[in-house]
Nucleic acid binder design. Structure first.
Lengths: 190, 190
DNA sequence: CATATCTATGCAACGAGTTGCACTGCACCT
DNA sequence: AGGTGCAGTGCAACTCGTTGCATAGATATG
């Protein structure tokens, strides 16, 4: 084991940017940091409680009119220390875990045409994600279209680079699907 | 939920290619199918037992001299049916889950130089994996260097395409690391 | 008017994956 | 003689992640 508990630290990063409730964090994860570390509201609630017990965050109950009360969390000094500590230690490299690869590997033991359709479906899904990332890039980093990251610094630069990772991963996935589709089709016509 | 229990099916694919013990399967996973669906021997033993109970595989105790007995598993007709069924149903698209993205996103809250070193380390790791995949490609698909997958068919073609997915993913990862390293270094000298 | 969706938190149960350990016996290296 | 590594199976305990459900008022949609 090299590094662990990344969800805690993903939450610390997000809460440091600005305080928020569990629910708000879950929405944020859906839209940004969750592209690199997906999490459901259940996970987030449980981990927030654990972090509260550990003293990494504190919460304030906030009453709202017309809406349920919420607990707004913010990072404590101990949480900041923990985040800094974690940032300096190694994490495990990402591992690929893709059921589509398993299916493709076993394709000849079943309905090859169905597997091909599945690859096409995945291509569409990844292509959609790619467009979402590109939309975020156009909205948040409009100048990067021409000049890349030359003008960006600090937190903004890092956010841009993370997004670039998402774009590259999805581009690569789509290109792989295209290669698979092309090869399987032309095999069928040989 | 779209599709689940991919480990069972990864094992069915592998056992269909040829029968083997839990230990042998664990070794195979380390060298091939595990690049797309990693699993430890513990997981494999537990799942094999479950599959045995479900009637998807059968086992034979094999005595060996100088070595412990082993249980050699093979796929039963019910297992073949299950595999065919699963191959025709959809699986969830792969999700990216990379702690390095979280770190990079939070880099400005800690030691930026340490995060940069971590990116360099990951670059090296992914580069190593890439070389492993390329080695397998040269060994198992030597003709693909020039002509791509034109000559391949059926199971061989699918294995080649899966390997291509691994190569593409690692290439893309290494390229991303290079982009990050370059951007962080040139930010430091601005 | 009824149904769905959003905000907001949470429990309970399960399945998936990880880590550490235990036992046996052979082969190899120093 | 002692340590490491490989082959082989397995238990126990744990964390991580998913799914289904419950509650509750507000607001939107048919």
């Amino acid at each position: 084991m090299v590094g662990s508990m990344a969800l805690e630290h993903a939450i610390l990063v997000s809460l440091t940017e600005r305080a928020g409730s569990g629910y708000e964090l879950a929405r944020r994860f859906d839209r940004s940091i969750g592209y690199f570390w997906p999490a459901t509201h259940q996970q987030i609630y449980r981990v927030l409680r654990r972090m509260d017990d550990a003293g990494w965050v504190t919460h304030t109950d906030v009453a709202q009119d017309g809406r349920p009360d919420k607990k707004v969390y913010e990072v404590s000094p101990a949480g900041r220390d923990e985040l800094t500590r974690w940032l300096a230690e190694p994490v495990d490299p990402a591992i690929l875990r893709d059921g589509l690869g398993v299916k493709l590997r076993g394709a000849s033991l079943g309905d090859t045409a169905a597997v091909l359709r599945e690859v096409e479906r995945h291509r569409a899904e990844h292509s959609t994600r790619l467009e979402i990332y590109r939309g975020i890039q156009r909205r948040d980093f409009p100048q990067s279209d021409s000049s890349g990251a030359d003008k960006l610094n600090g937190r903004e630069l890092h956010q841009y680079l993370v997004l670039r990772g998402g774009v590259r991963a999805e581009e690569s996935f789509v290109a792989w699907c295209d290669e698979v589709i092309q090869a399987m089709r032309s095999e069928g016509t040989r």
